Amino acid sequence: MSRGEILAKWAELGARERDAWIATAVMGWRRVSRPGGGGGYIGWQDAEGRVVAIEEDSMTVDSRDYFRPSRDISAAWTVFERFPYIEIARIPGETTTYGVRINGLDGSILAMTQESTFPEAICLAALIAKLTEVSADV
């Protein structure tokens, strides 16, 4: 995908859909549903088959267990750690703007608007880096 296509898709998605896109495209996870006595849960499974995060469940759990990287900095940090080289800067100005560069790719630099958050900047840059890498290899 091109950077423009990624940005357009991101703008169309809600928070939950963005988080699912990050889980599948960047983290390489797949969604799983597990029934249980309390109603079960929907989670994310890694390539080895381990459930590594929770999307939602029918019981009360610690919110830190949820994978919501576009909304939660601790989950965004999990995305951040997938890349060997990442730079982040808060850019001074009238709006809150973050610059994020992943793996030295200039195309991964983001200028976020005042409505956007730091976790969103990390996630969007990760998508740009990951999906433009894939398209460049094809």
Rank of each mutant, 00 (worst) to 15 (best):
L124M: 14
Y98K: 07
I54A: 04
Q45P: 07
D137A: 13
G36S: 09
L13N: 10
G4Q: 14
I88S: 06
Y66T: 00
L124D: 00
L127G: 05
Y85P: 00
A25G: 09
P92T: 03
I73C: 09
S63L: 09
I122R: 00
S108Q: 03
F67G: 05
L124W: 03
D65M: 12
I91K: 15
S116N: 14
D137E: 09
P69Y: 01
V52G: 01
P84K: 11
A136E: 10
Y85F: 05
E12M: 13
I122L: 15
S108D: 02
L131Q: 10
E87N: 07
L131C: 10
K130G: 03
L127P: 12
T97E: 09
A15R: 03
T117M: 10
L110W: 02
W10L: 03
N103A: 10
I42K: 10
R50L: 09
G36N: 02
L127Y: 07
A47H: 07
V138R: 10
R30H: 06
Q114M: 14
G37D: 00
R90G: 04
R71W: 09
G28S: 07
V138Y: 15
I109R: 09
L110Y: 06
A47R: 06
G99T: 03
S58W: 04
V100Q: 11
V100W: 02
S33P: 04
A129I: 12
D137V: 06
D57C: 13
A121F: 02
I73V: 15
A75Y: 01
T60V: 01
M1V: 09
G40R: 01
E56F: 05
A15Y: 12
A121V: 09
G43N: 03
T95W: 12
I91G: 10
I6C: 00
S70L: 08
Y85G: 08
R31K: 15
D137H: 13
I88Q: 02
E120R: 00
E5P: 13
G107I: 14
M112A: 04
S58V: 01
E56H: 11
V26F: 00
V134L: 06
K9Y: 15
V61Y: 14
G93T: 04
R30C: 10
A75E: 00
A121G: 11
K9Q: 14
V100P: 11
S58Y: 10
T78A: 10
G43Q: 01
R16I: 10
R3Y: 12
E133P: 06
S74H: 11
F83Y: 07
D62G: 11
I128M: 01
E81C: 13
L7E: 07
G107K: 14
A75N: 03
E5H: 15
A129Y: 04
R68M: 09
V79W: 00
M112C: 13
S2F: 15
R18A: 09
W29E: 11
E94M: 07
W77C: 01
